[in-house]
Simulated scan of single mutants.
Amino acid sequence: MSDLKGINLAMQTPFDEDGAIDFAIFEELIEKYLAAGVHGLVLGSGTGQHPYLTESECNRLYEVGVKLVAGRCNVICQSSALNVEEVVRRSRQAESVGANALMVLPPYFEGPSDEHGIFSFYEEIDAAVGIDIVGYNIPQATGISVSAALFDRLSGLKNFRYIKDSAGDFTVHQEFLRTRGAVLNGCDTTTLYALLAGARGVIWGAANYMPYEAVRLYELVTARQYDEAFQLWQRMLPSLLFIWRGPYTPSVLRAAQLRGFGTGNVRKPLRRLSSEQEAALRHSLGPLLG
């Protein structure tokens, strides 16, 4: 049983100019993020371009990452797939190399959208593994909204203990907080308020470019130093608003590159920022430099 409190950084997957994973940079990034004090790393995250990674690439990322982390923080591995048997296979592989938890999307793209169907999907995966499962509520991407009632029901399973809530609906988020399960915020622009409301922690893409600030924000909230937390938040917010409304992953990766974390390269079909988007991103990052 894992404790996924704190800053779980939804880690980028660094690519070279030809679109191949740069494992040397990957290992370098892990060390940098650990030095920043993150509490967990999410490998194969959405920010890590999971949809565009092969199963074998994910397996190698997870094996290399877990081995290098060596227990210095939690490691959450995404094992999402369209085919249930593939989810089980990916999940078991991640567990076998030492992952602390799994992150699994609901059965998106014309899968069952009724709550009984979604429950059955997770129930089968839950029965196949022995580590914690993090469900993933991101209806803007999947078309499936996980209700608080469904999350509470899922929390009765053996391993289903968390939900990552990236929907951005703070009313639903607070309903999740009233269930038996533990909640991890995934909407960048509500991070501070989710922590104040009682979220166990966050799975945070923007932490790729501001890991020290992300960890500091969590520390300030847990220490109840709210004035300082809000001051820091005001420096973070402009870039968070930009990435949430813009092309998310390319923006996060470019911001990370500008701040010394990674290559900034994306894998097709994602594209680099336009010159106008680049200028707006740089402007939004200004307060972090002050």
Rank of each mutant, 00 (worst) to 15 (best):
V42L: 13
T249M: 07
V84H: 02
Q231E: 15
T222W: 04
T142Y: 03
A207N: 10
V104I: 15
G46P: 00
M103D: 09
E228A: 12
G143C: 12
V104M: 06
Y62T: 00
G44A: 07
A280D: 14
S79I: 01
A10Y: 03
T13I: 02
S96V: 06
V84I: 15
I118G: 00
G130P: 12
A148Q: 09
R272S: 13
G168Y: 05
Y33Q: 08
A101R: 00
F170I: 05
Q140A: 13
N83R: 09
G262A: 10
V84W: 00
A141L: 13
G156S: 12
Y33K: 10
L289H: 13
G246A: 15
G6Q: 08
V215N: 07
Q78H: 09
P14F: 02
T222M: 15
V75K: 06
I131T: 02
S45G: 14
G262T: 05
F261I: 00
Q234D: 15
K164L: 13
R72C: 07
T171Y: 15
A10W: 03
D227R: 14
L217N: 02
L102A: 10
E27W: 02
R161K: 15
T179Q: 01
M11A: 11
A94F: 00
H39A: 08
W204Q: 07
L237C: 05
L157P: 03
V146M: 15
Y62F: 10
G40E: 01
E95A: 14
Y218P: 00
A70L: 07
R89S: 09
Q231N: 12
I21D: 05
R267L: 10
A194F: 07
E115N: 07
S91F: 03
P269M: 07
R254G: 01
L29F: 08
P139D: 02
P139S: 09
F151P: 04
L232F: 09
F109T: 00
L41Y: 01
R90H: 01
R245V: 06
V64F: 04
G181T: 02
F242C: 05
V38S: 02
E55V: 01
S145Q: 13
Y52E: 04
T47N: 14
L4I: 13
D16L: 05
L281S: 03
A99C: 12
P112N: 11
K67A: 14
R235L: 06
L184M: 14
T142P: 06
G65M: 01
V172R: 11
G135K: 01
L258A: 04
T179I: 02
S120N: 14
E86L: 12
L34N: 12
A256W: 01
D126P: 08
R282P: 02
Q234W: 14
R272D: 14
E110Q: 06
A35C: 08
L196H: 06
G260L: 12
Y122I: 04
L154P: 01
L102P: 05
D16K: 09
D3A: 10
A255I: 04
E124F: 10
E276T: 10
Q12P: 01
N100M: 08
A182I: 05
V215T: 10
P106N: 09
E228V: 05
L184E: 11
S275Q: 15
I243P: 02
L105K: 03
R92D: 00
V129N: 00
A10G: 08
G6N: 09
G181M: 02
R271S: 15
L240A: 05
A182W: 04
Y62V: 00
L61A: 09
Y212S: 11
K5M: 11
A223T: 07
P112E: 07
L253G: 00
A167Q: 12
G98M: 06
